[in-house]
Every structure is written in structure tokens, then in C-alpha cells.
Design a protein around this nucleic acid. Structure first.
Lengths: 200, 200
DNA sequence: GTCTATAAATCGATAGAC
DNA sequence: GTCTATCGATTTATAGAC
């Protein structure tokens, strides 16, 4: 007997997610350009033809993943700002969330974003998305927190932009380290925030 | 009248360096896989045929660059250990050197090394080189310094491996940030070392 | 919905003219 | 020493069978 439309829909959703999950790993490990559609298909355990049934192109898959990463990224910053407490406490909360993310599968998403940002091999549409939605939005959203923390004296008196770069560089570097080394020991939030905290 | 052998040799050296310089930029911006030999040729201002006259393959160029990066990297660590002063002073000297490097064209070399480490798209031969020669050697060379610093009380009492990861993550992240943003403000050595220093 | 076979395009690498 | 023309292999993307 034939499948109902609902069952079909469920299968489609599953496959789509399955492909995205596989693509995330492959992209992170090989880079957008080196990743072959057949690699993704193999990782997902299905034929390469089927991948094209669910996504228009390799680029389409990549863009979908970047959007996903952007959403998560901007959400964390948003929540952090709504958190209770001093600027430093908000930063600590955010840092904790990010580190937790990196410890899991989230490190892959960081690498994807980095690739999208660093590499000329990435289409212009995606780069545009980055400028609007993400890392800049994230780093810019952190700036107010840093400045506020400086006013309360919790955070080091120094060029806020320099501090923000320092902070995000460390986060980015940790995500990369996590991927480079199998069981790389990750620090806790306070460890990271030593970079920003005023002596006290 | 014909060129002398010396003149020819000089031309060859120039071209080789010219190609390497161009390849460094292209690889760093596009990644090893996405970088086309024609991109490198264009950046160097000569035909793609000529590139193959000077290098056996694209991989050959990449390997040459990685070796160059490795040499520089291991030299810095070596010099740092020979430096006078306390462990922390040695670390400060090394950090200063690395930051200076990143501020210049050295950031590209960092990206190349990172690619060679992170990406499965890179041939096994190169990966082997990494394990022997480099980042591990660098991070392992830093461990003794950190441990010594802990004994003198200059450095935070915590898992030395965790501290080493923290340190190199930040360095790596800064190199990336430097490439991502045109005029990204870089910190000084003491800023970076706040991560490791004991409260004082 | 899923697979295999195939078309079309791209790019690394070589050969040969100048 | 340098360039242009070309081969061969790989890969994206599609068409059609089941």
C-alpha cells in the first residue's frame, strides 16, 4: 500500500537533515571547494543523485549551513544581552554557552563560518550574508558589553575594539584547536575572560 | 647576445620566488583545493605553463610553502629557549616575535599551516611533516616553558596542556582575524600573556 | 523516493612552437 | 625561458529507469 503524504513529508525532512549533517562534517574537514558531492553522499549513506534531489547545488547546501550557523550565533548574543546581572556576568554567560557549543558538534559550524569569511572561493551572496548577519554583528554586539564593563570597572581599560578582537580570536582559535586535536582540553569561561578582566 | 649561465640562474631564482609569493596569497585566500594553477599564474603575472616549468605540481608548491612555514615556526621556538631571563620573559619574547610576524605577511603562512593541519584535502605526506616538524613541536616546546614558569610562580597553576592550548588558540585566532579584517588591531605580547600569568 | 548512466564543464598537467 | 594548444581525468549536474 502506498505511503501517505505525511509519511512522504517526514521522509523528505529526514533526508534533508541527514544530508545537511553529513555535509557539515565534510565541509569542515575538506573545505567547500575540496568537498565533493559524492563525499557528502557517501557520508550520508546515499547516492549522489539523491543529494541533487534535495538541494539545487553544492553551493546551496553550503549556504543553508552558513545560515544555520548565523542564526545560532546571533541568538546567543541576543540572549546574552537579555541576561540579568553585570556586563561581565553577561559576558561570562555568553562565553559559557559558546564553549559548550564548541565542545559538542558546534565547532564544525565555527569552521564553516570561518571558511565563508576567509575564503575567496565562497560566492558573493554568502559573503554579503556574513557582513549583515554575523560575525560582525556578533563582534559589534559584544562591544557595548565591553564598554559597559569598562564603566563599571570590571573590564580592563583599553581600546574596546582591540579587546573584542582578542576575545573573538580566542574563541575562533579554540574552535579550530578542538577540530585539530581529538581530545583537546577546553578552558572554562573564566579562563577565557582573564583576557578582558581588570586586575582585581 | 646570449645570456650567461649566471644570469639564467638568477632569472630562475626570481621566477621561483615570484611564484611562491603569489601562491602563498592565493592558497591562503582560496585554500589548497580551490586554488587554481591559473590563479597563481595570474597573480604572479605569467602563464600557467611556466608554473609547471618551475614546480612539478600544485601540491609541490604547497609543500614548499608549508616547509618554509615550518622552518620559521621552529626557529622562533628555538631562539626563545636560548633567550636569557625567566620562563615568562622567554615566552614574552617569543610572543612578541610571533605577533610581529602576524602583523606582516606572516599571517598568510599561519593560514597555510592551519589548512595543512585541519583539512583532509591535504596529502598525507604533508600531514606527516606537520606531526614531525611543527605545530606539535611548537606546542610541545612551549610546555616546558609553561611548566618552568609555574615552578617560579610566574604562571598560573593549572593544567599545563590546557594553558598551552589556550595560548596557541589565541595566536592562531589572531592570525585569522588579521586576514579577515583589513586593519584589525593586534594586541601586544603582555596582552596575550594575561591568559597565562599568575595573579600578581 | 531512490538509484545508475551519462552529458557538460572544469582544471591539472604535458607537448611543442617561438 | 616563455607561451599557447591540447589531452586526460575528475566532478558537477541531469535524465531516465525502477
Amino acid at each position: 500500500m502506498p505511503r501517505t503524504e505525511e509519511q512522504n513529508q517526514q521522509i523528505r525532512d529526514e533526508r534533508r537533515e541527514q544530508i545537511l549533517q553529513a555535509a557539515l562534517k565534510v565541509f569542515a574537514r575538506k573545505g567547500m571547494a575540496a568537498a565533493k558531492i559524492s563525499d557528502i553522499a557517501a557520508e550520508a549513506g546515499l547516492s549522489h543523485g539523491l543529494v541533487y534531489h534535495y538541494f539545487k547545488s553544492k553551493e546551496d547546501i553550503f549556504v543553508t549551513l552558513v545560515k544555520k550557523a548565523l542564526q545560532g550565533s546571533s541568538l546567543v548574543v541576543q540572549y546574552a544581552q537579555q541576561q540579568e546581572g553585570s556586563p561581565l556576568q553577561k559576558l561570562r554567560w555568553m562565553t559559557h554557552m559558546i564553549l559548550q557549543h564548541i565542545a559538542g558538534e558546534g565547532a564544525y559550524l565555527f569552521l564553516i563560518m570561518m571558511q565563508a569569511f576567509t575564503s575567496d572561493a565562497i560566492p558573493e551572496e554568502v559573503k554579503q550574508m556574513m557582513d549583515d548577519g554575523l560575525a560582525f554583528s556578533a563582534i559589534k554586539a559584544t562591544l557595548p558589553l565591553i564598554k559597559a564593563g569598562q564603566q563599571t570597572g570590571e573590564i580592563l581599560q583599553d581600546d574596546p575594539e582591540k579587546l573584542a578582537v582578542l576575545y573573538y580570536s580566542l574563541i575562533q582559535g579554540l574552535a579550530i584547536s578542538k577540530i585539530q586535536w581529538k581530545n583537546c582540553p577546553l578552558p572554562d569561561a573564566d579562563m577565557v575572560l582573564r583576557l578582558l578582566k581588570a586586575k582585581g
